[in-house]
Amino acid sequence: MQVPILKQGAYLIASIQSALEDDDLVRLCDALSTQVGKSRARGVIVDVTALDVMDSFSTRTLVELATIIRLRGAEMVIVGIQPEVAVAVVRLGLKLEGVSTALDLEEGIAYLDGKARSSGKEKNDRG
């Protein structure tokens, strides 16, 4: 099952609609890392609200994706992790270190907007 990728302003949004097979997740990651350059996106949001399980494979894949996105000059945020899934991920011993998280899509966008504002201030101070 393919995950649609939407472009909203400077951000790419991938909303996972149901449990994903390993290959589909890998395909999504490939697509996002390609498109982030093509579309000159500043940020990527991966919405995992519909995932009822995040095991070591999917977590690892998402952590790798976040690293790639950062290397491509954008920021990635995972949104919508369910409370039970969060507990399972932590208890498995996975940390999602270096990955930003937010409650939901709205929060994810707010987070990226905040990032853009603060980095914009640093880069060219408009005074």
Partner: peptide, 17 residues
């Protein structure tokens, strides 16, 4: 409990993989 259902599913996912 909801959390334990998710833990069971997660364990199966790991073992099956």
């Amino acid at each position: 409990a909801a959390t334990d259902c998710t833990l069971v599913a997660t364990a199966i996912s790991e073992l099956a993989r």
